[in-house]
């Protein structure tokens, strides 16, 4: 039986505009994620799926409730500790690839390793191997502007996994891609789960994406409405 790597307990997130009553984006969400599991968070716009991902991924702080990653209560971490945690334990793939335009494909992927203080000697083999793994061999010196959307998203995945994160968070990674490029990206993610036991939590509203994931959590009005 697989162990739980990530848990949320009574997670609440409210947004409050001045002199207005608070708007609940999450209304006490409880969820658990196992190691090596590929989970999709789905729901209509405004359902709270992205907000939920942001709380789990340490990109935002919940109003109340708990997020535990490997039994660490991440809400108690300082900003600096959260930055280190994001760098060492988590990986991110964003909808619009979020690559640094002035860095080559290789440099974009190597960025987290550099931030961890590794020398090129130490990370070069890993980066080369990951470039191969995402199918971009021979293009390591290309700038993001010289790559297609699908290729850029694969670079983004490569960057997210280069430091071997415990959990990979993906926020609508295929939203900007055509169906062919989206399939390639999702296949790469599926392969990470199958071959390398990678945990992936992905926000999507593409019904077709369901076939690549192990489990779907549906959110509605800030609460989990269904899990399959």
């Amino acid at each position: 039986m697989k162990e739980y790597i990530l848990k949320s307990k009574d997670l609440v997130k409210t947004y409050k505009a001045e002199s207005q009553s608070p708007v609940f984006a999450l209304r006490g969400v409880n969820a658990e994620f196992k190691k090596g599991e590929f989970v999709a968070l789905m729901g209509r716009s405004g359902s709270g799926k992205s907000t939920f991902l942001h709380q789990l991924a340490l990109l935002d702080r919940p109003t109340s409730g708990q997020v535990k990653i490997n039994n660490t209560d991440v809400a108690k971490l300082s900003e600096n500790e959260r930055a280190k945690f994001r760098l060492q334990v988590l990986g991110y793939v964003f909808q619009d690839y979020a690559l640094i335009p002035e860095l080559s494909l290789y440099e974009n992927i190597a960025l987290p390793m550099m931030a961890l203080g590794f020398s090129r000697k130490k990370y070069d083999a890993d980066v080369q191997e990951i470039i191969k793994r995402v199918g971009l061999n021979g293009r390591k010196n290309n700038l993001p502007s010289e790559l297609s959307g699908g290729e850029q998203q694969r670079v983004s995945i490569a960057r997210a996994i280069v430091n071997k994160p415990e959990i990979l968070f993906a926020d609508e990674p295929t939203a900007n891609l055509d169906s062919e490029a989206a399939s390639v990206v999702l296949e790469v993610m599926r392969e990470l789960v199958d071959k390398y036991n990678q945990t992936i939590i992905m926000v999507t509203h593409e019904p077709d994406d369901k076939k690549y994931v192990d489990r779907v959590i549906w959110l509605k009005d800030g609460v989990i409405s269904e899990e399959r």
Binding site: E79, A83, K84, R86, L87, L90, L111, P112, A115
Partner: peptide
């Protein structure tokens, strides 16, 4: 601005 957000998100420190 967005790029700074990305750098922060992937764990690059504010100082860096």
């Amino acid at each position: 601005r967005k790029q700074i957000g990305i750098l922060k998100a992937i764990g690059i420190s504010e100082k860096s």
